[in-house]
Design a protein around this nucleic acid. Structure first.
Length: 426
RNA sequence: GGAAGGGUGGCCGAGUGGCUUAAGGCGCACGCCUGGAAAGCGUGUUUGCGUUAAUAGCGUAACGGGGGUUCGAAUCCCCCCCCUUCCGCCA
């Protein structure tokens, strides 16, 4: 959420930022409500000041026993009452109006983010690893998994419909092994603290991380009114909501291995086969809470932590920085890591690491006391996948497939797979 | 699901209609004291909004949220949200 004062101070910069995202200028409309509100507040406060003064006087006069004078003063205050009552109501409405308008405005891109319209304008930062070569036509993950007899979309459809999967035996174990491997890496080597947190959140928390009100249709809601998390970012980031942190506590680094639930409302027809796009999938998430000064360095660090997972699994990838037009709603700068999928002969997103500035912190009211003793400041929040477990499994199946249909287990995972070296047909 | 008790500055906690300008304590900051520290003593220490060059000053609001009573509400009344405890059910 934006600070209306920042917009007031520099409306041109605000509109410029929106245009980089391909959106029309909005400062004029917002500032119109803002100035209406401020004019209104001025009048209201004058009336309140007068009422307060008169009321105080009434108290004194009554103590002195001058009833007649007290009655005269009461009559005077009565004239202000209606104005104040309706004025308070109007102020509330105007505040709500401007907040509602601000709540659906996306974050603005950081300086230096490549300008562009859509994913074609994203910029590659670097690549890592060798794409594997095959002396046969590499198959896609769903063909491999189904042939192994360990991946079942048909039965999943009977239970739950499209975009669900059932994994069995070695593949079910691989899913769990990947989660453990990633969490262990981030906690033992990257300084993140493992967290277990709710998968169901209430409205306020979803608003805090900017999933609401705009992306309601991408979420699942329970009969209790809770929202199923589309990412552990939602739970982890909210751990600091409504808190006043000490500067020395920052940065806070958290990780969690959780299921994620997404309605995929806008993705009809996209990636309909296989495990790439599911209503339910697992992910190991990284979240950092920092000071504004720490955020940029933390972002690079987080990216490196996510990349390390792929390096240890020896999976080729490339890293790109998203252009202004392709970034998510709350992001000021986003790196995507795309893993090489031989079966598709394409790079596919496996992680997205974003810094959101104070965008979520404002919505959550998450602040810290600076060490220099000055007034509270909003924290900065960052999040990244480290990594999407389902898609990592896809990458392993496709990159480590053998001509006999089996799949070699990456060495780094073998300790988590009971020492097994291969996944073979059931 | 049933019953009861609660929600007050960073934290704990007092406060049933006007000297509450939210007591007191903790924590924190600075000073005194000390060889240095602790203890002790003293001073200071909420946030939002408006105005402003200003984190100065002034004004205003805020005691979970909203509405009501009143000249005046943390305090009285109504509705809602949330938390805790006990009982029931239960992995």
């Amino acid at each position: 959420m934006h600070d209306i004062k920042t917009i007031r101070d520099n409306p041109a910069a605000f509109d410029q930022g929106l245009s980089l995202r391909g959106l029309p200028a909005q400062s004029a409309a917002l500032l119109k409500i803002d100035s209406e509100k401020r004019d209104h507040i001025q009048k209201l406060q004058d009336a309140q000041a007068r009422r307060n003064a008169l009321s105080k006087e009434i108290g004194e006069v009554m103590r002195a026993g001058d009833k007649a004078k007290a009655e005269a003063l009461k009559a005077e205050v009565a004239g202000l009452k209606d104005f104040i009552a309706s004025g308070e109501e109007a102020e509330r409405l105007l505040t709500q109006k401007i907040n509602d308008a601000l709540a659906v405005v996306p974050n603005l891109p950081m300086e230096g983010v490549p300008k562009g319209k859509d994913e074609h304008d994203n910029k590659e930062l670097h690549t890592w690893g060798e794409k594997p070569r095959f002396n046969f036509e590499p198959r896609q993950h769903f063909d491999i998994g189904e042939w192994l007899g360990l991946m079942d979309f048909e039965t999943a459809a009977k239970l739950s419909g499209a975009r669900f999967v059932i994994l069995k035996g070695q593949l079910a174990k691989l899913e769990r092994a990947l989660g453990l491997f990633m969490v262990d890496l981030h906690t033992e080597h990257h300084g993140y603290t493992e967290i277990y947190a709710p998968y169901m959140l209430r409205d306020e928390a979803m608003f805090g991380v900017a999933q609401l009100p705009k992306f309601k249709e991408d979420l699942f809601q329970t009969t209790s009114g809770h929202w199923l998390i589309p990412t552990a970012e939602a739970s982890l980031t909210n751990l600091v909501r409504e808190r006043m942190l000490e500067e020395k506590e920052l940065p806070i680094r958290m990780t969690a291995y959780t299921p994620c639930f997404r309605a995929e409302a806008g993705a009809a027809g996209k990636d309909t086969r296989g495990m790439i796009r599911q209503h339910q999938f697992s992910k190991v998430e990284l979240v950092s809470i920092t000071t504004p000064e720490q955020a940029e360095a933390e972002h690079s660090r987080m990216l490196a932590c996510a990349e390390e997972v792929l390096k240890r699994l020896k999976l080729a990838f490339r890293t790109i920085v998203l252009c202004t037009g392709d970034m998510g709603f709350g992001s000021r700068k986003t790196y995507d890591i795309e893993v090489w999928l031989p079966g598709q002969s394409a790079y596919r997103e496996i992680s997205s690491c974003s810094q959101l500035g104070d965008f979520q912190a404002r919505r959550m009211d998450a602040r810290f006391k600076p060490a220099d003793g000055k007034g509270p400041r909003y924290v900065h929040t960052l999040n990244g996948s480290g990594l999407a477990v389902g898609r990592t499994m896809v990458a392993i199946l496709e990159n480590y497939q053998n001509d006999d249909g089996s799949v070699t287990i990456p060495e780094a995972l073998r300790p988590y797979m009971g020492g097994a070296e291969k996944i073979t047909r059931a």
